[in-house]
Design a binder for these strands. Structure first.
Length: 386
DNA sequence: AAAACGGGGCA
DNA sequence: TGCCCAGTTTT
């Protein structure tokens, strides 16, 4: 049995969270928020959403913008395919004269899958759809006591969630119902220690009745992350500009800028001597102490940094950028590398206006003793090796 | 069906 | 330190 939507919507009308994309019906704003919120927390999105909207106020402005401007605005948000697809979809929407008004039409746009199509259809167009995200999966798995593990149970959970459309109230307020499920999952029906006592559906929850709410939804075990190693080359000229390179349009960090370097290979860290043939230019490269570490979904990346100064023409595929602009454009993994040049372990992302970067004392070029993987540390911080 | 694809925050 | 987050695309 599906619990009554009236009880959830009554709770939502009293306790709904206030967020910048709520209230308006503008499909552009709803769409933008949904894309930014893919695998990204509300807290992380809010300031970036305002800033993005400030810079690209409507779909026409986004469609007219060059990719470089969109990439710079997205830098640090992750999953850069989202930005590429967003840009392409904006151009498609302008070309066809506006947003598609139903789920199937939305689903055909790049970067819009089953979830986002349902969310925009329900919230912006009042269409009868139930978007199934992580929150809805969790709420549904608990309400119906679905014990099969994710991701295998995904299809079954989606069918159960869609069953709420049998209630007339859900068909009348599909956008509110969807967001009520999000809010319930985010504030009460949380992954750990759900606040069942406060839940408007607690009397209808099968998992709670069985006392298994804390262990649902079950998850299949995940694969371990491999380690990869890279060595990068930071070239600066006399004005403090940095030599950057554009990554290929698809794949990891696709279309984003990077500090030129070796490929990221398994098993073995690079020595400077070994990496030198892959430097962007010939120069007096000095290997800095320390390793920048960055965790991706599927691997752990460990990078070292060599530095040099030269004022030369940018080689093919590379370009010079003022330090401040480079910092703003680079994805987080590359900013961590930059922190090595800026003075090491304590360096922070928001470490103020940087003039010419401070050079560290050079370490001997010798293959450092660090041939074994350094102890894992919290994803991303810059670490010093002794 | 499985893997690729970022980054930050929190118990 | 592992898990989670308003998922989508490619293989």
């Amino acid at each position: 049995m599906h619990p009554p939507a009236s009880e959830l919507l009554g709770w939502y009308d009293r306790h709904r969270r206030v967020m910048p994309w709520r209230g308006a019906r503008d499909p552009y704003r709803i769409w933008l928020s949904e894309v930014m919120l893919q695998q990204t927390t509300v807290a992380a999105v809010e300031p970036r959403y305002r800033r993005f909207l400030d810079r690209f106020p409507d779909v026409e402005a986004l469609a007219a913008a060059p990719w470089e401007a969109v990439a710079a605005e997205w830098a640090g948000l992750g999953y850069y395919a989202r930005a590429r697809n967003l840009h392409a979809a904006a151009r498609a929407v302008v070309a066809r004269g506006g947003f598609p008004g139903d789920e199937a039409g939305l689903r055909a746009l790049p970067g819009i899958g089953a979830y986002t199509a349902a969310a925009v259809a329900a919230i912006a167009f009042n269409q009868p759809a139930v978007p199934v995200d992580g929150n809805v999966e969790r709420v549904t798995a608990r309400v119906f006591d679905v014990r099969d593990p994710l991701p295998g149970s995904r299809a079954r959970l989606a069918v159960l969630a869609r069953g709420f459309l049998d209630q007339a109230l859900v068909r009348e307020r599909p956008g509110d119902f969807a967001q009520a499920l999000f809010d319930l999952g985010a504030t009460l029906c949380t992954p750990r220690r759900p606040a069942c006592a406060l839940c408007p559906w607690n009397a209808h929850c099968a998992a709670r009745a069985a006392g298994v709410q804390d262990s649902l939804p079950a998850k299949a075990p995940k694969a371990a992350r491999a380690q990869r190693f890279g060595l990068h080359f930071l070239l600066r000229d006399r004005e403090g500009r940095m030599l950057l390179r554009q990554r290929p349009p698809s794949g990891l960090l696709g279309g984003m800028a990077e500090i030129p370097g070796t490929p990221w290979r398994l098993e073995t860290p690079w020595t400077l001597a070994e990496a030198l043939p892959q430097a962007p230019v010939a120069a007096a490269w000095r290997l800095l102490p320390g390793t920048a570490q960055h965790g991706f979904t599927h691997m752990e990346l460990l990078m070292r940094l060599a530095v040099a100064e030269a004022s030369v023409a940018a080689p093919p595929g590379c370009f010079w950028l003022p330090a401040e602009e480079a910092r703003a454009t680079l994805p987080t993994a590359m900013r961590r590398l930059l922190a090595l040049a800026e003075g090491g372990a304590g360096a922070r992302d928001d470490a103020g206006a940087n003039g010419p970067l401070l050079a560290e004392p050079a370490s001997p070029v010798a293959p450092s003793g660090e041939t074994t993987a350094p102890a894992a540390r919290r994803g991303g911080r810059t670490r010093r090796t002794a």
